[in-house]
Design a binder for these strands. Structure first.
Length: 313
DNA sequence: CATTACCTGCAA
DNA sequence: TTGCAGGTAATG
């Protein structure tokens, strides 16, 4: 479920509900593998009596900071959900773990697919866990210039690169497709081939998409709910993700779905032309035409872009 | 770089 | 029954 906007939405709702509350211990453990470290007994002992100081987010991780340098780190993965409810209330169907508060409520972690993970870390361990994450796209310090330079160092295609949390933190499958569409870049474009203005456009597009999505409370198309159980509204605002065969909102061309790096990838073949797909690539495939017409097309291509032309060979 | 694994539910 | 799903780590 969760990419940066969803995790940020959960963070806000969770902070409003639990900052200031004091944990009493572990109260429910249906799926022990959810807890990476430490052993459940130790975790329970270490959180008991600890007060929630803040709920933070780094990339797609949530970090519930407790006094005494303890941090409850949560990764929702695909279907994880957090909620707060009285302990004596029936637990959700897919509840996996719950942490009791001293006031009779509990923090619940539900997770249909059981991919989600929770760890209790001290400050040093927390820093180590976040060490390899790339920049936060909404941080003021993340500049278009730095981003352009980083792209220029990579030959990888844009789609998998933007999904790489070490390159840039927080994007997932939905928002990569949405950002590439807004920047008019094809998902298979090698990063190094993105022109400067393309990098600037992509930098802006990433921020716009993430900000808009946070403003909509994230994207719900099946499982995702925030810390109050509410759905996000961004699904209806998306432009290409899961809109295969629907008309592009800009030009009307049917949205295409391909698989890149094993992930469903959606784009507009007109607005996001394939890498290198200029007249040089299109002309050879054009239907047979009078020689004079072909020559004119070639001449115009050379004149307007100055790229390497295959016509002469 | 692609594939598989981790899991389960749901729609075609 | 098959394929697909918001993520990521571990394999060839």
């Amino acid at each position: 479920m969760p990419e940066l906007p969803e995790v940020e939405t959960v963070r806000r709702g969770l902070a409003a509900q639990i900052v200031g509350r004091v944990f009493a211990g572990l109260s429910f453990l249906e799926w022990p593998r959810t807890i990476e470290t430490p052993a459940p007994e130790e975790l329970s002992r270490r959180i008991a009596g600890r007060r929630v100081e803040a709920v933070r987010r780094r990339a797609k991780f949530l970090a519930i900071a407790l006094d005494g340098d303890e941090h409850l780190v949560v990764h929702l993965r695909m279907t994880g959900q957090l909620s707060v409810a009285p302990q004596d209330t029936p637990r959700e169907r897919f509840a996996r773990v719950a942490f009791a508060f001293a006031d009779g409520n509990e923090l619940r972690f539900s997770d249909t697919r059981r991919f989600g993970r929770i760890a209790l870390l001290n400050g040093v361990e927390l820093a180590a866990r976040f060490r390899d994450l790339g920049p936060e796209p909404l941080d003021a310090g993340w500049s278009a210039g730095d981003f352009a330079a980083a792209l220029a160092r990579r030959r990888t295609r844009l789609k998998p690169l933007l999904l790489d949390q070490a390159f840039l933190a927080g994007l997932g499958n939905i928002y990569v497709d949405e950002a590439l569409f807004r920047a008019r870049l094809h998902p298979l474009t090698p990063a190094v081939e993105v022109p400067e203005e393309g990098a600037v456009a992509l930098h802006a597009a990433i921020r716009e998409v993430l900000s808009d999505a946070i403003g909509s409370g994230g994207t719900t198309f099946s499982n995702y709910r925030d810390a109050y159980g509410q759905e996000g509204d961004y699904y209806e605002r998306r432009r290409v993700y899961a809109r295969t065969d629907e008309p592009c909102p800009t030009c009307g061309t049917q949205i295409v779905r391909i698989v890149v790096g094993g992930r469903g990838t959606h784009y507009c073949p007109t607005c996001q032309p394939a890498p290198g797909a200029t007249l040089a690539r299109i002309v050879p495939f054009a239907p047979a035409a009078p020689r004079r017409l072909v020559a004119e097309a070639g001449a115009e291509y050379v004149a307007t872009t100055g790229g390497d032309d295959t016509d002469g060979r």
